[in-house]
Amino acid sequence: MDNAEHMHLIYVILAAAVATFLTRIGGYVMITQMKRIPPRMEAALNAVPAAVLSTLVAPAFLSGGWDVAAAMLVAMAVGLRLSSLWMLLVGWLAVMAIRHVLI
C-alpha cells in the first residue's frame, strides 16, 4: 500500500471505532431518557444475552461441519456441569480427535 491508501485504511478503522463506540453507548443514552423501565421492557432486557449469543452459536452449529457440531454437543454436555474453560478444552480435544484420529 502507498501512503494515501494507508491513510485511507486508518480513516476506515477510526470510523469503525466510532461506530462501535456508538453501539456501546447508544442503549444507555436511550434508556436514561426514560424515567422508569416498564415491566415488559425489563423482561425483554433480561432476554438480551441469551437471544444475542444464540445467534452466534446456532449458525456455527449448522454450518461448521459435522465435526464442529459433534464437538459443540460434547462441550454442551460438559457445560451443564463444569465451567466454560472445561467446555473449551473438551470441545477442542473432541474436534482434534475427530480431525486427526477418526479421519
Binding site: 449469543l53 452466534l56 452459536v57 456455527a60 452449529f61 461448521g64 464442529v68 464437538a71 459443540m72 462441550a75 454442551m76 457445560g79 465451567s83 466454560s84 467446555m87 473449551l88 470441545g91 477442542w92 474436534v95
Partner: peptide, 9 residues
C-alpha cells in the same frame, strides 16, 4: 471451534 463453544457457554 473455540469461539462458538465459548458463546455457547
Amino acid at each position: 471451534v473455540l469461539l462458538p463453544i465459548y458463546f455457547m457457554g
